[in-house]
Amino acid sequence: MLGLDDPLVLTAYLGIIALAILSILYGLLRRNAARDEVSDEDRQWALDEKKVDDEF
């Protein structure tokens, strides 16, 4: 198949494509599944991070 005789190399080749498809499906199915809230703690963390970065 595909000119690749070694089953392990063929598995890797097709496995890469399969994983990419799986990732796309995961992203589509979970698109809005998880919560999307920014807490005060998250915002404070980002402010601290920004402060260090800006000084840098």
């Binding site: 799986l22 990732s23 796309i24 995961y26 992203g27 698109r31 998880a34 999307d36 980002a46």
Partner: peptide, 22 residues
């Protein structure tokens, strides 16, 4: 990962990340 806003943002980034790395 710490700079990410939420789990939802991570979930949505998975497909693009996978295709990019591929």
């Amino acid at each position: 990962f710490m700079t990410v806003r939420s789990r939802r943002e991570l979930d949505r980034a998975v497909p693009i990340g996978a295709v990019f790395i591929m």
